[in-house]
């Protein structure tokens, strides 16, 4: 379980904080979603978990242990992260790419640990990318690439998975595949922390939501508690209504036209 406890983050000691006093918990068996406008601090929270930005105060824990005290490789075995962007300068075979997820499990000299190849094929099956294993990463479509990245994170193992905007640039079918995968991973006991702009899909699939605005939590709880028209209107600075989608029985945001 991942927990942020009163976390404040600033990029430089002198700069004003980009995240202020954020507390949240991503429990095992649940999809916890962080939402909020661009620049509200969502990805900064993910980077803080990776130790890429220093905390001014507060702490981030995994199963009660401060991540700052967990050796990096051990942390990577506990929690896999699919970052928002990834470098694709050098193409690789897809199977080889997914196997990079086994890096934290390799021994001295990078020797493969027992079960590594099994973990790679199991991850590929779970993410539905088995048919892509013989392909090269620069030949994949956007949707295939995102699923292959998730497969790499699954190959990493661990009980926690962080997905930072995994569906940007994806069409509705590929988007649904990722959300369904996140939801089924949670059902099998993983703690899934999801950063997304897709409020309607989040409202359907997430167990709980955290709404950030200017680096602070403005609402948290079940989707019904966070998906409130007047609140979202203020945070996103755009007229909108929240209705209920009868087909899936979930709150649904409908942006309106702003009168000019």
């Amino acid at each position: 379980m991942i927990a942020y406890e009163d976390v404040t983050i600033a990029y430089a000691a002198s700069a004003s904080p980009v995240v202020t006093g954020v507390s949240l918990r991503a429990e095992r068996g649940a999809v916890t979603a962080i939402v909020g406008p661009n620049g509200s601090g969502k990805s900064t929270l993910v980077r803080a978990l990776l130790g890429r930005v220093p905390l001014v105060s507060g702490r981030i824990t995994i199963d009660g242990t401060d991540v700052a005290e967990i050796p990096r490789r051990d942390l990577a075995r506990l929690c896999a992260v699919v970052t928002q962007r990834e470098d694709t300068t050098f193409a690789r075979n897809v199977a080889e790419y997914i196997a990079l997820g086994r890096y934290p499990h390799t021994g001295a000299w990078g020797s493969a640990a027992a079960g590594d190849s099994g973990a790679v094929s199991a991850a590929a099956r779970r993410a539905g990318v088995e048919s892509l294993l013989g392909r090269v990463t620069d030949e994949l479509s956007g949707g295939e690439w995102q699923r292959v990245r998730v497969a790499r994170a699954l190959a990493q193992g661990g009980d926690a998975l962080v997905l930072d905007e995994p569906t940007s640039f994806l069409d509705v079918g590929h988007e649904m595949q990722i959300f369904q995968l996140a939801s089924s991973l949670a059902e099998s006991g993983t703690a899934v922390l999801l950063v997304s702009h897709q409020l309607n899909l989040v409202a359907r699939f997430a167990t709980s939501m955290i709404l950030l605005h200017h680096g602070a939590v403005v609402a948290t709880g079940a989707p019904d508690a966070v998906m409130r028209g007047e609140l979202l209107e203020r945070v996103y600075d755009w007229p909108l209504v929240v209705t209920r989608d009868p087909a899936v029985n979930a709150p649904m945001l409908v942006p309106l036209r702003r009168s000019t």
């Binding site: 990776l50 990577a76 896999a80 992260v81 970052t83 050098f90 990079l100 997820g101 890096y103 990078g110």
Partner: peptide, 24 residues
């Protein structure tokens, strides 16, 4: 040669490499 696997991970970018346990 000894550190080649670490460099493989670095090709993914700094954040992803950090996520895989590399001190970037």
């Amino acid at each position: 040669v000894a550190y080649a696997p670490e460099i493989d991970v670095l090709t993914l970018g700094e954040d992803s490499a950090a996520g895989l346990g590399v001190d970037v």
